[in-house]
Computed example of a mutant assay.
Amino acid sequence: MNTPFPVVQGSAAQRIETELRRLIIALELPPGSRLSEQDIAERHGVSRQPVREALIGLARTRLVEIQPQRGTTVVKISVRKMMEARFVREAIETAVVRRACLSFDQQSRERIDDLLEMQDNAARRDDHAAFQRYDELFHIALAEGAGCPLAWEAVQDIKAHMDRVCQLTLPGPEAMLPLIDQHRAIVAAIDSRDEEAAAEAMRRHLTEILRALPRVEAEHPELFSA
C-alpha cells in the first residue's frame, strides 16, 4: 500500500463529491464557506450538472445547505448531529467486533497489522491527513474481516459529522498515538475471541471524542452551530 489516498473511481459527480467531502472534513472548506457551482466546474473541467449532483449528495448527508437563489454553503458543525452519529456508529461497530470475535478473515487480520504500523508512522511524523485515512482503513478492515462490509457503508455517510470534530481534537502525535493503542486493544480482544472486551474497547475508542468536545467547542465557537 503506497498511499492512503487511492484514486477515486466513478462518475464525475462522484469524484467531485468525494473531493469536496474530503475538503470539508479537513476544514479546508470551513463551516460557512460558500461553494460556487461555476468555480468548481471550471476547476474540475466539467459542466455544472455533475457539480450540482455532487452538491445534492453532500446536502443529503447534511454537510452543505443548498438555498435557492442564494447558493450553497458548508454547514456549521452540529453537536447534536455529531452525538447522533457517534451513537449510531457505536451500535454498529460494537456489533462488528463482536462478530469478528466469532470469525475473522486472516487476510484482513494481517492487513490490520500493516495499517496500524503505517498509522503509527503517520502519527509520529504528525501527518494528520494520513493518520485519519489509516484510521478509516482500520475500521473498514474490521468490517470486512468480520464479513459485514455493508456495516461500514452504513457508518460512512454519518461519520463525517464526527470527522470534522476529530480534525480539531488531534493537534499532534501526543493526541494521535493513544488512539492507536486503543486500536491495538480492540484487535487484542478480537484475537482472544473476547466479545465483551472487544465491544468495550470499541466503546471506549468511540467515546474519546466526547472528552475533547467541550475544549474544541470553546476554542472554535465560530465553527459550531448555536
Rank of each mutant, 00 (worst) to 15 (best):
I190S: 09
R48S: 03
V74L: 08
C148R: 04
F5D: 10
M202G: 12
G145L: 02
I186T: 14
G10C: 11
V46E: 04
V96N: 02
L102T: 09
P50F: 03
A154V: 15
E53D: 05
A198D: 08
I77Q: 01
V46N: 01
P6F: 07
M162N: 11
L206R: 12
G71D: 10
E110A: 12
R109Q: 09
A218T: 09
L115H: 13
L150C: 06
I158W: 12
M1W: 07
P31H: 03
E153W: 09
S36E: 10
L58E: 11
V155C: 12
E136W: 04
R193I: 02
R99G: 00
D113Q: 04
F138A: 08
A226E: 10
R111G: 09
R21A: 10
E222Y: 00
P50N: 00
Q69E: 14
F104C: 04
L23Q: 14
R211M: 15
D181C: 10
S11N: 10
I25S: 12
L102V: 05
M1P: 06
A91W: 00
A189T: 07
P214F: 04
A188I: 01
E200M: 14
R124Y: 01
L168V: 02
D114V: 05
C166V: 01
A143H: 09
R98P: 00
D135E: 04
P221W: 01
E136N: 01
H220V: 00
I186H: 11
G71Q: 06
L150T: 09
D126M: 00
V216Y: 00
K159C: 10
H128G: 06
R60E: 13
R211C: 14
A26W: 09
L170A: 03
T73H: 06
D120C: 01
A197D: 04
E219P: 02
I40H: 05
I40V: 09
R70S: 14
I24A: 08
M162T: 11
P178S: 03
R133Y: 13
E200F: 13
A100R: 12
S103R: 15
E17G: 10
V88R: 08
L63G: 05
Y134G: 08
P30G: 07
S225Y: 06
Q14C: 14
R62L: 13
E65V: 11
A201K: 15
E84V: 03
Q14F: 13
E42L: 11
V96H: 00
D114G: 02
Q67F: 09
D163N: 10
D163K: 08
D157N: 15
V88H: 01
A129L: 03
I92R: 05
